[in-house]
């Protein structure tokens, strides 16, 4: 009796998440129809976001926020991947064991800091440093990319470390027993062994970087303009959505749904890839 109830409740909880996912997709798709019909594939080419007179019609296109999103994410990944690998290798293979615990905990705590704090810190403290060093206005692609990197490093480093820790000690020992150095062991044994987990962590971090709103909203400048150099301000999909939602109606709102749908689909594909890699690893 109780068993059956429990079964049904847990079944409901499990299927609910599936329906929420499906529901979000359907709603996005439904409200994006207007914009899809109006602009079609041109939505990916139009570099304007202009409501028409009296809030009727207008020209809306996603290319600038899409490019902005991709560029900030690219900058973040270029910085974060090598640093995260370095941290993970240090923690698994090099650091003295008295150091592993505190550094590990610090990294996990960094991953738990709310993104708005990174945004504030980035805007008030970090942006002036960037302005001083690289010129520009302080806010822009580079600042957003670097702070985004700082945000995803702990996350990526922690998962990569866990993946590397699954390398059986005896496998490492047998490499050492053949005269390998720590560098050889990391390169030839640990990295190949943990490959699935490492790729998974990169893809998960990528998903997070693509969707990050708050910190980027502080730092990217929120200007609807193609950046011509790395310190230029521009905008990204989540930032444009967050800034314009309160006043948008009709076609603009529909265009925003379309933009959201694009982000949703890209993130969904990326997370699915990550899952695929993680599953591939556990199946081995």
């Amino acid at each position: 009796m109780g068993g059956k109830l429990f079964r049904n409740v847990s079944f409901l909880s499990a299927t609910l998440s599936f329906f929420i996912l499906l529901g979000i997709f359907v709603i996005l798709f439904h409200y994006a129809q207007d914009a899809m019909h109006t602009f079609g594939w041109d939505f990916l080419r139009i570099d304007q976001w202009e409501p028409g007179e009296d809030d009727e019609g207008g020209m809306f296109g996603g290319v600038i926020p899409i490019v902005g999103t991709l560029l900030t994410t690219l900058i973040a990944m270029v910085i974060a991947v090598p640093l995260s690998m370095g941290i993970a290798i240090f923690l698994t293979e090099i650091a003295h064991k008295n150091l592993v615990k505190p550094v590990g905990v610090a990294i996990e705590l960094l991953a738990a800091i709310p993104s708005i704090i990174y945004g504030m810190w980035g805007l008030f403290y970090f942006a002036p440093i960037i302005q001083h060093t690289f010129g520009g206005n302080g806010v822009g692609l580079l600042t957003a990319g670097i702070v985004l990197a700082i945000m995803i490093i702990p996350f990526m480093a922690a998962i990569t470390r866990d993946a590397m820790n699954t390398t059986p000690p005896v496998l490492k020992e047998s490499a050492y027993a053949m005269g390998a150095t720590t560098f050889d062991v990391v390169k030839d044994v640990v990295m190949p062994y943990a490959k699935g987990g490492i790729i998974g962590s990169i893809i998960l971090a990528l998903g997070r970087a693509l969707g990050e709103t708050m910190a980027v909203a502080f730092l990217i400048g929120s200007v609807l303009k193609f950046p011509s150099k790395i310190t230029d301000p521009t905008t990204s999909i989540p930032v444009l959505l967050a800034n314009n939602f309160s006043e948008a109606q009709d076609l603009e709102l529909s265009s925003m749904y379309l933009l959201a749908l694009l982000l949703f689909v890209v993130s969904f594909i990326i997370i699915s890839l990550a899952k695929f890699y993680f599953l591939g690893r556990s199946a081995k």
Binding site: P168, E173, S174, Y176, M178, D188, V189, P192
Partner: peptide
């Protein structure tokens, strides 16, 4: 150098995640 002169075989087989050839060539390359 000592570990290349005094080799060790472990309880569980420990092939490296590479090909058969590379496994044997590994120590030589090192």
């Amino acid at each position: 150098r000592l570990r290349q002169r005094v080799g060790m075989i472990f309880q569980k087989p420990t092939p490296f995640p590479m090909t058969i050839f590379e496994n044997v060539a590994y120590g030589l390359k090192l």
